[in-house]
């Protein structure tokens, strides 16, 4: 028998604290697989966010720091600038990155910080109980948009990759989805390019990963993945928005 897939070494033996069917674990595994395949584990520092993945350092076994809410890209900047030989990743949700941390994120991208951002977007604040996020879809009901998100009151879903791709110093910007095996394979390809952008010292890289939140969407894990395909991806299309020269 030949091994086709195997749980990557950097995934620790500690079961995650995520709800059943939460795609955070898929994103974790993709990060861990690439760290192992690219032989980066021992030089990696991951900056974890505030949100559901606040305990991420228990689940991926690298050096790690825990940032204040939204400040991961600033913290990563401090680490990478003083230790350019470290491989620095931030792992952030949509509340953390697109709301409270948007300034830190945009300016890290403007400066072309040689860091990689894994941006998991599930369209709400999962940890705090499913409140509206900048990424919540129009009409979507959350605990703070109980009548559905009304664009007249709170605007439209925020498209982070499309915004960042307009900045000259970004090296690789893409959006993937974690809803299906096919999309997960593609997500890994995108993430590998993002990692390469940092390894080759080209610039700022970010991959948004469209995710679900079965608990707060009040759906089964399977139905939540279907909702990604039917409702979320039409608003947040998958694709590469910026591939700078030299990114493989």
């Amino acid at each position: 028998m030949k091994t086709v897939y195997k749980k990557p070494e950097p995934i620790t033996n500690r079961p995650t604290t995520y709800c059943p069917g939460c795609p955070h674990g898929i994103a974790h595994r993709l990060v861990a697989e690439l760290l192992e395949e690219m032989n980066l584990t021992s030089e990696t520092v991951i900056v974890w966010p505030v949100g559901c993945s606040v305990f991420g350092y228990y689940f991926i076994g690298t050096d790690a720091v825990e940032a204040a809410h939204g400040r991961a890209c600033a913290m990563a900047t401090g680490m990478k600038r003083t230790h350019p030989e470290s491989f620095v990743i931030t792992y952030q949700g949509d509340g953390d990155l697109a709301s409270i941390g948007i300034a830190e994120t945009v300016h890290a991208a403007v400066r072309g910080e040689k860091i990689t951002v894994v941006y998991v977007n599930n369209g709400n604040y999962g940890m705090t109980g499913g409140q509206m996020a900048p990424t919540t879809l129009i009409g979507q009901k959350t605990t703070t948009s109980p009548y559905g998100r009304d664009p007249k009151l709170t605007g439209f879903p925020m498209h982070v990759p499309e915004m960042l791709a307009t900045l000259e110093a970004t090296a690789y910007i893409a959006r993937a989805s974690l809803d299906s095996p096919q999309h997960i394979i593609q997500a890994k390809k995108f993430l590998k390019k993002a990692f390469n952008a940092q390894v080759n010292g080209i610039g700022f890289s970010l991959v948004e990963m469209i995710s679900s939140c079965p608990t707060n969407w009040k759906m089964t894990p399977v139905a939540a993945m279907e909702r990604i395909r039917n409702e979320v991806l039409p608003v947040f299309p998958i694709g590469e928005f910026k591939v700078a020269e030299g990114v493989e």
């Binding site: 091994t3 086709v4 195997k6 674990g25 898929i26």
Partner: peptide, 18 residues
């Protein structure tokens, strides 16, 4: 390996092919 790919908990720990 679809099961491995979609598994959020790394509980599908290995896929083998004859």
């Amino acid at each position: 390996g679809f099961c491995y790919l979609i598994c959020p908990d790394a509980s599908i720990i290995e896929i083998r092919r004859p």
